[in-house]
Design a protein around this nucleic acid. Structure first.
Ligand SMILES: NC(=O)c1ccc[n+]([C@@H]2O[C@H](COP(=O)([O-])OP(=O)(O)OC[C@H]3O[C@@H](n4cnc5c(N)ncnc54)[C@H](O)[C@@H]3O)[C@@H](O)[C@H]2O)c1
Ligand SMILES: NC(=O)c1ccc[n+]([C@@H]2O[C@H](COP(=O)([O-])OP(=O)(O)OC[C@H]3O[C@@H](n4cnc5c(N)ncnc54)[C@H](O)[C@@H]3O)[C@@H](O)[C@H]2O)c1
Lengths: 206, 206
DNA sequence: ATCACGCTGTGAAAATAATCACATATTATT
DNA sequence: AATAATATGTGATTATTTTCACAGCGTGAT
């Protein structure tokens, strides 16, 4: 497969989000420069990025919103339902479950896990919470590939190791520490503090 | 000022975080290859990035943890206290206040704002919540430059516009929509759904 | 005192990403 | 049917980012 730049992937995900919104609004066609404006990108870059996807628009109408959305979805392989688990139903965990639930029907948090007896065997926005000790089996039996980690910092590494052993291939980590995982596990760190620092830098320096 | 790549800024922020941790652990010196491993970077890249900061290490011991941390802090201008406000004390807002509080003493959420009478005039992890209508004045009087937006999607644009008018220069936006703001306002979108999609892409394609 | 080692700092090279520029396609209009 | 207007797709170009390679330095060993 041809290597696609990480930035391209990030932008495609944003395009897809905007296209979904446009589709819901009933818009049929869109030009590269409009999509660029909506996505914080550039017309040239939109067209370049779409080369990777392989979908062609028409010079007259631009791109079919519906077809382009579905082409990008296919390209990103997120067209079928993807099952994800979440570990740690704390403040952040609950906010994420709520959000995910509303946001993208293609991505389903299929179960959550916690260690606190008060949280286990309850449902949060339709997501059932099990004891953490059952996570391993759950991952294996349901072939779960992606996990969201929102446990306290001190627990994150243990959880990440256990999940990797069980066959998890991707982790969205909200914990500030860096996780040590096998090479074939992809980790995305989502540390809000870093985003905030970035904002502060650009406010003070640009 | 010489233009610094956005990726460099992001990495410097991570280096700083790791250095802070090392400092707390009492480590005195560190080599570029060790810092690279801790930060998910490369030794060459660490050294290249540090050229922007202007701090020099010694070939014998590497970099002084304390001095390097403080040089990066100075460079990022985040050495003095920065005051930030948060709009929308919902699930996510509360999680962030709690987190920020624990995480970085240099960055203080100085106040929060909400529209719900049940939430106003209460304290959350030491952060007092005021009525949203007082936010404008607060920003002006206290010269607040950075805001975190965690209100419902439908309210985000209104809030962003009002804050921009009042002089806000940077926004960390947790809402899925794209905000239209004046050119001199820097917006960082922190949409977890996009991070999750990215993880899913890399799990399925790499 | 000298040497060997291993790291830093940085110019140069390579790789990657973004932008430009234009040939090509499609439609509306006359 | 010809023409004008406008947007796409992509080779070429430019800019940026990363990696390489090595000179130079400081330390500890001999
Ligand atoms: N990345 C961010 O922006 C951000 C924001 C807020 C919080 N955080 C981080 O996210 C994490 C969670 O934050 P929070 O505010 O939700 O904390 P929290 O304490 O509210 O929630 C943590 C949850 O994890 C559960 N838990 C503890 N140990 C566990 C284990 N071994 N297995 C399974 N579950 C376990 C707890 O019972 C609790 O329900 C922390 O690391 C925090 O630093 C990150
Ligand atoms: N980016 C992410 O990863 C992520 C995750 C979870 C939620 N979200 C988003 O963050 C936002 C908040 O999510 P939440 O779960 O905390 O929602 P929530 O409903 O729990 O909280 C929203 C808060 O905003 C307050 N509010 C409403 N209108 C307001 C106004 N005009 N001025 C001031 N305050 C106002 C409400 O009273 C409430 O306290 C939503 O847009 C959601 O989609 C994002």
């Amino acid at each position: 497969m041809i290597k696609i730049a990480e930035n391209t992937i990030k932008r495609l995900i944003v395009y897809k989000k905007e296209l979904n919104r446009l589709k819901a609004e009933g818009k049929k066609f869109i030009y590269s420069h409009v999509l660029a404006a909506l996505s914080g990108s550039q017309p040239h870059l939109v067209r370049r990025d779409l080369m990777a996807v392989g979908y062609s628009g028409s010079p007259a109408h631009g791109y079919s919103v519906k077809e382009l959305e579905s082409s990008i979805s296919d390209f990103l392989c997120s067209s079928r339902q993807v099952k994800v688990i979440l570990i740690g139903i704390g403040n952040l965990g609950r906010a994420i479950i709520d959000y995910c639930h509303k946001q993208n029907p293609k991505i389903a948090i299929s179960s959550a896990f916690d260690i606190d007896p008060n949280k286990i065997n309850k449902e949060y926005h339709g997501v059932y919470c099990f004891h953490i000790d059952t996570a391993r089996n759950y991952v294996i039996e349901n072939e779960i590939k992606v996990a969201i980690i929102t446990v306290p910092d001190s627990e994150a590494q243990t959880i990440a190791t256990a999940l990797s052993d069980a066959g998890i291939r991707g982790i969205l980590n909200f914990t500030p520490g860096r996780l040590r995982v096998p090479e074939n596990v992809y980790v995305e760190n989502a540390d809000m503090m870093l985003y905030l620092e970035k904002v502060i830098y650009f406010v003070q320096n640009v």
